[in-house]
């Protein structure tokens, strides 16, 4: 498989915005005028920064309540996990599993996979390059589905506004949860999957 030439060996590089094959050494794409880099600048440091910011926000996102329900005078606060448990308890296993996947499994997979990719790339690991490349495309694809819980809280809070009878209000936890999603999206965008393959050759710049 090593017979396929690398673009940088042929002195060209890719414009990420318009797919143009740019000559080496240009600062901006000759076709669409976007900035062009051989590799995303400071990819590893930026990915680490966004990933760690996401991890830090993930703590208040789970500890703080995401919404506050007042039903016929009874007030209760829900965190993400207690919402999942409530669904499961009321027999809606499908919805409970759906929210659990979107709010817990997807962000955790993103943290683990991006962390693993960063460590293996720093070590210039040759291990399972094709599978790691596939994992990266997978987390790019699933990342934004974590927004699900934020949207559900927004819709429910907008709907259930019956003054003294029953109200639902969003709480601070949902802000942190939304920020986790945004941070992990930035982290995935900052990571350059070409770093996985750069381990095959020495001193790529």
């Amino acid at each position: 498989m090593s017979n396929i030439p690398y673009a940088r060996d042929q002195n060209v590089c890719l414009c990420h915005v318009c797919s143009y094959v740019c000559p080496d050494g240009v600062q901006t794409c000759p076709r669409c005028e976007s900035p062009v880099h051989v590799r995303k600048p400071n990819s590893q440091a930026r990915t680490w920064a966004f990933l760690i910011a996401g991890l830090i926000f993930y703590i208040p996102a789970n500890v703080l309540p995401v919404m506050d329900t007042t039903l016929l005078g009874n007030r209760s606060e829900n965190t993400i996990m207690s919402g999942v448990i409530e669904f499961a308890g009321s027999g809606s296993w499908d919805i409970a599993i759906l929210i659990f996947i979107a709010s817990v499994v997807v962000p955790c997979i993103k943290f683990l996979v991006l962390g693993m990719l960063l460590v293996t790339c720093q070590r210039r690991s040759q291990w399972a390059k094709r599978e790691r490349a596939r994992l990266f495309r997978f987390i790019e694809l699933i990342g934004y589905w974590s927004m699900l819980d934020v949207l559900v809280v927004a819709l429910v809070a907008a709907l259930v506004q019956f003054h003294e009878l029953s109200t639902i209000e969003p709480r601070l936890g949902i802000l942190f949860f939304g920020l986790v999603v945004v941070m992990t999206m930035f982290a995935a965008m900052s990571f350059d999957p070409r770093l996985i393959w750069d381990a095959e050759v020495e001193n790529v710049r």
Partner: peptide, 21 residues
């Protein structure tokens, strides 16, 4: 309406993200 429901005090930032999305 659902975007507005999030635009409350400290959490307004998330309303902007949802409004964009």
């Amino acid at each position: 309406g659902s975007v507005q429901a999030l635009a409350q005090g400290r959490i307004t930032l998330i309303a902007l993200v949802v409004g964009l999305a």
